[in-house]
Computed example of a mutant assay.
Amino acid sequence: MQRLSVFMLLAGLTFLHGCTVYGIYKDQRLVDTITDDKTLSAGIKSELLKENFTGGWSVAVYSYYGNVFLIGEASQNVQNKALAIARRHKPRSVTPHWFAPAKSDVSDIVLATSLRKELIQTGGLSSTRIDTEVNAGRVVLLGVVGDDDEKRLAVRTAREVNGVTSVTNYLMLPSTQKRTTE
């Protein structure tokens, strides 16, 4: 029984490791850069959630090459707090994208699922590098893509999804900055 448990644990870890390697392999950023970006966005999100306001849940936080993106539908008070918190973490830049309240005929979950499906099925796109936020038909694309052609293809694909009313593009190209060691 103990051998079976160890085998199952090792098999599970191998599977998870394979998923991680695939995700990192498809990402244009260096592993250290990915780690720094994940740490930065997690730190900001964690601090947002520690605040005594429920609006922290309504703000998505992304980071690419130290550039932070705050996306969501939030009150002015939450927006101001989110910006202040993000800036305290000293990112290269902070780009807020606040949605005005709106209604849509298609639910955000259904639209996000349709969008993800189309991104996955579109040849020439590495959909694992593209993050999406959907709010009442409005789509925000974020991530690091290989080149301008892939960026244009992602935007065109998103615009063609039934129910999408607008697409905002924050897709970035791989950074050519050299890594420095301290």
Rank of each mutant, 00 (worst) to 15 (best):
T128K: 09
V139P: 04
T122N: 12
S5F: 08
V61N: 03
V68W: 08
P91E: 10
R179I: 09
S63C: 07
A11Y: 02
F53H: 14
S175F: 00
R87T: 11
S166F: 00
A158D: 05
S126C: 06
E47G: 00
E47I: 02
V59M: 03
V106Y: 10
D37V: 00
P96G: 08
S104D: 15
V110S: 15
K50Y: 03
G12C: 08
A136Y: 01
V106N: 10
W57F: 10
R3L: 13
K26V: 04
V94R: 06
K50S: 06
A60C: 04
G72Y: 01
G72Q: 05
K117Q: 14
A84S: 13
G56N: 05
R29Y: 03
L171E: 11
K90G: 02
T181E: 13
L111K: 09
R29L: 03
E51Q: 15
M1K: 13
P101V: 03
V59Q: 05
V134K: 04
L173R: 07
A112Q: 12
Q177E: 12
T113Q: 15
L70S: 02
D147C: 11
V140A: 03
M1A: 14
H97N: 10
L49F: 01
K178A: 15
L115S: 05
G55P: 06
G66N: 07
T168H: 04
R29N: 06
T14N: 08
S175M: 04
R156A: 15
K178Q: 10
N52H: 09
N80V: 01
D36T: 00
T20P: 04
N162T: 10
S63H: 04
L119P: 09
K50Q: 12
T95F: 01
T113H: 06
L30T: 10
S5H: 14
L70D: 03
T14Y: 11
A102E: 14
N52T: 06
G66C: 04
R116E: 12
A11N: 06
V161N: 09
S58C: 04
G124F: 00
G124C: 04
L13C: 14
S166V: 01
T95S: 13
T176V: 05
T14L: 15
G56C: 05
L171Q: 09
L83C: 14
Y62T: 00
Q121Y: 12
E150W: 03
G18D: 05
W98Q: 13
T14M: 14
D36L: 00
L153G: 08
Q177H: 06
S175L: 01
F7R: 11
L142N: 01
R129F: 01
R179N: 05
A100L: 14
